[in-house]
Nucleic acid binder design. Structure first.
Length: 435
DNA sequence: TCTTCTCGCACTTTTGAAAAGT
DNA sequence: AACTTTTCAAAAGTGCGAGAAG
């Protein structure tokens, strides 16, 4: 399994985040950053917060690259999930892990389009160990795995040069957020509505990725009474190595295409026994060339295939009833959190990685925060004091004991006027490039 | 010339409003 | 009258393949 020491060797044995390194964030033009801002946000309010962040005296150290995940291929076995958190007893498991592993074994590819494309498989997790009465937010973001661009070489993916400059992070907020622990634990939490785009000026707030790059989705759990709550109970961040994927604008590996068609109900029409199977499409084209089609055609195999209908050897029927397609109870969605001005959950929403020792594009404490009113309290949050907790292996990650070094930040008061994109929305974190 | 991206197509599933039933 | 279930059309989500762009 991954240990934080292996994850972020540059952080040292205590995984502490250091002072900024010269030029760490200098490659991203501020003017360009404007275009990445969340489109529907009240940017003046956001700017108030972001400007404070960017003026912070401390930024994180140079980007600790994510650990090198096993190269995509059938021979690799993904390591167990890894998590960083301060929510004791909380564990997360990947519900559709088998499906993910099936894709991972071939080398998962995710289509990205200008308009935004959903992920398939989607991240669907079940969570345990939450306080049934407390409220939590569920977030998802996607981060680059390494600094390379990839190309398909006919049989496998291989690095082909340096990665494009990292785009500002956006976070997808689960539509049920905030909801009680009981709600989250009642049924698996699905992120099937997340959309990926390659449009750097995307107006819809989808997660922006570069094509031909390797990415890793991460799921963040934040304890807060509401998005703008001033009372925090901690955060937890999880990632599952088998969910790593390469973003593409068109599938490169035909085996991935087969898997997607077999597993995704929306692609049912492309299965061998579907009306849109290649044989049927070819037949339609021929008929078109010959003249008008007198009657509707039957699915392939019904008449011209000996032994009955064509049968997909990949067996997609079981997956058709994939519960991730079913809408989850919307306990909290009907009562969206109102915009408000407290620090806290937004801080995590804006820069979740800062709480987990992730890359340096994330800022340190907002200097406009007032100091802790109670001298007995630990020092206000600063990512520079973040310590990461290793956890045991297994498919579900057990949360480590509470990390006290940053939790106090969340009970700080201060100006923090943040717009709320609403349940199911995306929040632009306005981050700086990783490379 | 090669690789990558965009767009329109035909198909399936999902969604939500209206109608029907209890 | 209020609530639940069913129906159905529109919207959204798929991969394919041709052609454009770099």
């Amino acid at each position: 399994m991954y240990h934080p020491r292996e994850l972020y060797p540059s952080l040292g044995t205590g995984y502490r985040l250091g002072h900024p390194q010269p030029g760490a964030d200098s490659s991203f033009p501020p003017a360009l950053a404007e275009g990445y801002r969340y489109p529907d946000l009240d940017t003046s309010k956001l700017d108030c917060f972001l400007s404070g962040i960017e003026a912070a005296p401390h930024t994180l150290s140079a980007p600790p690259p994510l650990p090198l995940l096993p190269s995509l291929g059938p021979e690799t076995a993904p390591p167990p999930p890894e998590a960083l958190h301060s929510l004791p007893g909380v564990s997360l498991s990947l519900e559709n892990q088998e499906l993910w592993k099936e894709f991972s074994a071939v080398g998962t590819e995710m289509i990205i389009t200008k308009a935004g494309r959903r992920m398939f498989p989607a991240c669907r997790v079940s969570v345990t160990g939450l306080d049934p009465e407390a409220r939590y937010l569920f977030l998802l973001d996607v981060v680059p795995v390494d600094g390379a661009r990839y190309r398909w070489q006919g049989q496998h993916w291989e690095p082909s040069g340096k990665a494009e400059p990292r785009l500002p992070d956006r976070v997808y907020i689960h539509p049920d957020s905030p909801a009680t622990g009981a709600h989250w634990m009642r049924q698996p939490v699905s992120f099937h509505r997340v959309k990926l785009t390659n449009s750097t000026l995307d107006p819809h707030g989808h997660l922006i990725l570069h094509s031909m790059h390797k990415y890793q989705p991460r799921i963040h759990l934040v304890r807060a009474t509401q998005l703008c709550s001033q009372h925090w109970g901690g955060v937890a961040s999880f990632r599952f190595p088998e969910t790593t994927f390469i973003s593409v604008t068109a599938y490169q590996n035909p085996r991935i295409t087969q898997l997607k068609i077999a597993a995704n109900p929306f692609a049912k029409g492309f299965r061998e026994n579907g009306r849109n199977c290649k044989r049927e499409r070819d037949a339609r084209v021929k008929r078109k060339l010959r003249g008008p089609e007198p009657v509707a055609t039957e699915a392939c195999g019904s008449g011209d295939t000996p032994g009955g209908p064509c049968d997909s050897t990949l067996g997609g029927d079981i997956r058709d009833s994939d519960p991730e397609q079913a809408p989850a109870p919307r306990e909290a969605a009907s009562a969206p959190a109102p915009p408000c001005g407290g620090p806290s959950a937004e801080a995590y929403l804006l820069h979740p990685a800062a709480f987990h020792g992730a890359p340096s594009h994330l800022p340190a404490r907002n200097p406009s925060f007032p100091e802790a009113p109670d001298p007995g309290r630990p020092a206000p949050y600063s990512a520079a004091f973040l310590e990461l907790q290793p956890g045991p292996g297994g498919s579900a990650y057990q949360a480590a004991p509470s990390v006290t070094s940053f939790a106090p930040h969340f009970i700080q008061g201060g100006p923090f006027p943040l717009p709320y994109p609403g349940p199911g929305g995306y929040l632009d974190m306005g981050s700086k490039p990783m490379y």
